[in-house]
Design a protein around this nucleic acid. Structure first.
Length: 610
RNA sequence: GGAGGAGUAGCUCAGUCGGUUAGAGCGCCGCCCUGUCACGGCGGAGGUCGCGGGUUCGAGCCCCGUCUUCUCCGCCA
């Protein structure tokens, strides 16, 4: 340990400047590059604060023979310490690209703490072009890149500011269990077998939802937690099997109180880091858009409002249209909606065909369109001849289409029309460069429906979550018109991502039971799954509401990444595989025996005989 | 579960119409080099073209199957 102490660094690499010239220092870090000129050797030494140039020069400096010999051995990513003097670089040898570029450290002594094998990939290469499995398998190396360190630092800084905000606002930070109970709704659970009674299982929490509501019953009043959540569902670029939520809940508050509290949080954190991230918030206060309006204007409940290109519902205009395709869709309760493609009239034929093909790929039956001529009239495009002049003029006006624009139509079921136009809208916005990447366009989507039709069973399921409080008076419609019911339920959306989700909760047992029953649960099922919640509500549960912004996506937006794995220290790959730890993995037979588990081998897939 | 892209040297990639010994850059190894900072120069090693089968005189390239991976759809209270 004496040696370790003797070689302890006195200063960080990135901190050295011209005014440090003459100082005796010890620096420590990793050799980033080595440039050996025979007589003189330069080593770029990197620690987390930056890079400083080490000069090993036997003839001119105080470099010891031993140090010179040691320097010959050093290769990329060796971990070393260097003792020496900070000196001004000789004239003309300064490096203006380096903050420490005006000085260098003349090495008197060097110690190699640890050699490094040749690396599986080079750290100075662009991270995104590297094989991701390799990056994750050797994540400890990948994280040595300054760009990755910066992401970890930024994430830390977000968390620090989140905590500071909630402490300031009198929230209590409380942890909730990781070993809990499976709830059959929602996502697939990760299960943990219970040793003492084989056949019983814990589940890892999909969210601390029930616990935080119980904390409100406990009178905590203001709770938050940086909470790990687990969902065994298919992966996406913005999803991981385990992820982190900024979970909060408050008692005796209204929906507005929660929205304002979270909006304040986002503004404080994002604005506070604006200098670091280059990201600014586009709209303050965040626009509040009711769900129905969001679906009408954008075809999505998570619209990217960094750009316009809002959709136009042509139902009223085409009420008496002679065009059979549109007529039939409207008669059968579907939607005909239009989107303008600015300048789209000058697309090559192949570009227009592509829109048709994409629409089909997205699930629509087709993509009809017409082109707006220079004079504003509509004479070209496949549907131009099927629509009357009045209809075309009204659509041009309603969609605010300009001469030279293409106006496209999707006519399908309500769901399909919106889904396809949402994707086309984002595609066109991206292609035309309408998106300002430096902006974070937050908005609130409010007034979600309570129920959604379950396509599989034909029954009713919850649109958002089963604990959301129906709005005042809406419970009356639970039998007559459940689709009409709206909840005090809200999402925070940013740049087309769902950034947070929450609701005013039901705190009366009888209301909760009514909702569960509408979802088709029997008394027995309700008791078994949610008996503890209903019990708790029966002991003076306060009105309460909450929300849960996703931390990973938030950081991802701040670092300008399109992949959540970039901002997670040790992420998993698709399928939940972790190549670093090689998890999941088999366990000892003894462990299985203890748990009373027997593995049933997967049946081999039926091979096709040629 | 489905669709599409990718898989060639340690890494990033090229490889034409199916044709001789599969290439480049970086990295690695050796030698040289006193002011570089993507140092430079000379030389060298390094390949189960993901895997299995097929077509063919001949397959990195064509066909079938399969695995891995990325993106998307389904899924994600």
């Amino acid at each position: 340990m004496a040696e370790l102490k003797a070689w302890q660094r006195t200063v960080t690499c990135g901190a050295l400047r011209a005014e440090n010239a003459g100082e005796e220092v010890t620096v420590a870090g990793w050799a980033e590059t080595i440039r050996d000129h025979g007589g003189v050797t330069f080593i770029d030494l990197r620690d987390r604060t930056g890079v400083v140039q080490i000069v090993v020069d036997l003839s001119r400096n105080e470099t010891s023979e031993a140090a010179h010999a040691e320097a010959q051995k050093i290769r990329a990513e060796y971990c070393i310490s260097v003792r020496g003097r900070v000196v001004q670089r000789i004239a003309g040898a300064e490096n203006p690209h380096l903050p420490t570029g005006s000085i260098e450290v003349e090495a008197r002594e060097i110690i190699v703490h640890n050699a490094a094998r040749p690396l599986p990939f080079q750290l100075n290469e662009d991270t995104v072009t590297n094989n991701e499995e390799m990056r994750i398998k050797y994540r400890y190396l990948d994280l040595r890149r300054p760009a990755m360190y910066r992401k970890m630092w930024l994430r830390h800084e977000v968390v620090r500011r989140v905590r500071s905000y909630f402490y300031k606002n009198d929230f209590l930070e409380i942890e909730t269990p990781m070993l809990t109970k499976s709830s059959p709704e929602g996502a697939r659970d990760y299960l943990v077998p219970y040793r003492l009674e084989p056949g019983l299982f814990y589940a890892l929490p999909q969210a601390p939802q029930q616990y935080k509501q119980l904390l409100m019953v406990s009178g905590i009043e203001r709770y938050f937690q940086i909470a790990k959540c687990f969902r065994d569902e298919s992966q996406r670029a913005d999803r991981q099997p385990e992820f982190t939520q900024i979970d909060l809940e408050m008692s005796f508050v209204t929906q507005d109180d929660i929205l304002n509290m979270v909006e304040g949080l986002m503004i404080e954190v994002v604005d506070g880091l604006a200098e670091e991230t280059g990201k600014t918030i586009l709209h303050k206060p965040f626009p509040r858009i009711p769900y129905d309006e969001a679906m009408a204007r954008y075809g999505s409940d998570k619209p990217d409002i960094r750009f316009g290109l809002e959709l136009t519902d042509c139902g009223a205009i085409l009420e008496n249209t002679q065009f059979a395709v549109f007529q039939n869709v409207l008669k059968s309760g579907g939607l005909v909606k239009a989107i303008r493609y600015p300048g789209g009239a000058s697309l090559p034929r192949s570009g227009m065909d592509e829109l048709v093909n994409l629409s089909r790929e997205f699930g629509a039956k087709g993509f009809a369109y017409f082109l707006v001529d220079d004079g504003g009239a509509v004479t070209r495009g496949p549907v131009a001849k099927f629509l009357s002049d009045e209809e075309k003029a009204a659509i041009v006006t309603a969609s605010e289409a300009q001469p030279g624009d293409l106006v496209g139509f999707i006519a399908d079921t309500k769901e399909m029309t919106n889904k396809v136009l949402d994707r086309l809208r984002r595609l066109i916005g991206d292609r035309l460069g309408l998106i300002d990447k430096s902006k974070l366009a937050y908005c609130w989507i409010t007034d979600f429906p309570v129920f959604a039709k379950d396509e599989e069973t034909g029954g009713w399921t919850f649109e958002h979550n089963p604990f959301a409080l129906p709005q005042e008076g809406h419970l009356e419609w639970i039998d007559s018109d459940p689709a009409r019911m709206r909840a005090y339920c809200y999402d925070m959306v940013c740049n087309g991502y769902e950034a947070a989700s929450g609701a005013v909760r039901i705190h009366k047992p009888e209301v909760q039971v009514a909702i569960f029953k509408k979802m088709g649960l029997t008394d027995e099922q309700i008791e078994a799954r949610f008996g503890h919640m209903l019990d708790a509500f029966a002991f003076g549960a306060p009105p309460h509401a909450g929300m849960a912004p996703g931390l990973d996506r938030m950081v991802m937006l701040l670092t300008d990444d399109e992949n959540i794995r970039e901002v997670i220290a040790f992420p998993k790959m698709g399928g939940g595989y972790d190549p670093l730890m090689d998890a999941p993995a088999t366990v000892e037979q003894k462990q299985l025996d203890e748990l009373g588990l027997r593995i049933i081998e997967k049946e081999p897939e039926k091979k096709q005989v040629i």
